[in-house]
């Protein structure tokens, strides 16, 4: 059985839980006391992931860290329809591009949330302005997509690019990042919420 080392309120773990749900993959959650226990920094957890981060996924003898890598693996291995990670080289490349964005630039929104909600000590002004810069890039891209009559980041169906980008956009209010200036982000989030088997997490606003 697939095991996800998980903390419910982690946006990165939420990415993986969303795809497990969309693909209806049986799994088991292994609870990690990320806050306040900081279990991810323990000696035991360092043996599971030397980067001391969640999520980590175990499937048989395979162990993967990094939400984006996990999404790519799950899609390749279990998505028989091959829509969540398209085979077409151009679309595949675009999906990978947005996965990279989700794991780097967009993580500024995660930092702001860790600061505001959990009291992490970091440069909050910097985190918020970096998050706004990332949101502007995503919003511009979605504007172009919507002009073409498209809803999703890549192609004409939802992909793991959307799954990877959704959590920290939807949870941005938790970090004091407003979305008044990103109308296209809001349309995209609404569409995402309507996907079958979508599941919210605390902090995802109802009105999205």
């Amino acid at each position: 059985m697939i095991r996800l080392h998980n903390y419910t309120l982690s946006g990165s773990c939420y990415k993986v839980r969303l795809l497990l749900g969309f693909l209806e993959i049986q799994h088991e959650l292994v609870a990690v006391d990320f806050f306040p226990g900081q279990e991810h920094k323990s000696v035991e957890f360092s043996a599971i992931n030397p980067l001391q981060q969640i999520p980590v996924l175990d499937d048989g003898n395979l162990r993967l860290r990094d939400a984006q890598a996990i999404l790519a693996y799950l899609a390749r291995r279990y998505d028989t329809g091959r829509t969540w990670l398209p085979d077409d080289p151009a679309r595949f490349g675009q999906v990978m591009m947005w996965l990279g964005f989700a794991g780097t630039e967009l993580m500024a929104a995660s930092a702001a949330r860790l600061h505001d909600a959990f009291g992490f000590d970091l440069d909050i002004d910097r985190a918020r302005s970096d998050a706004h810069a990332a949101f502007a890039v995503l919003d511009d891209h979605l504007a172009e997509r919507q002009i073409l009559g498209q809803t999703w980041l890549v192609g004409d169906t939802p992909t793991i690019a959307d799954v990877a980008c959704f959590p920290y956009v939807a949870l941005s209010g938790d970090g004091g990042i407003g979305q008044e200036h990103y109308p296209n982000l809001r349309i995209w989030q609404k569409a995402f919420r309507r996907l079958p088997r979508f599941d919210a997490v605390s902090g995802v606003p109802e009105f999205v």
Binding site: Y7, L9, A31, V32, E39, D174, S202, G203
Partner: peptide
Amino acid sequence: SSTTSMIDFQQTIFLQDRIILE
């Protein structure tokens, strides 16, 4: 229940309140 799951339950509740409160 494990301690981690009891914390998880309470935090899940409180973060639902937080968004309303703010």
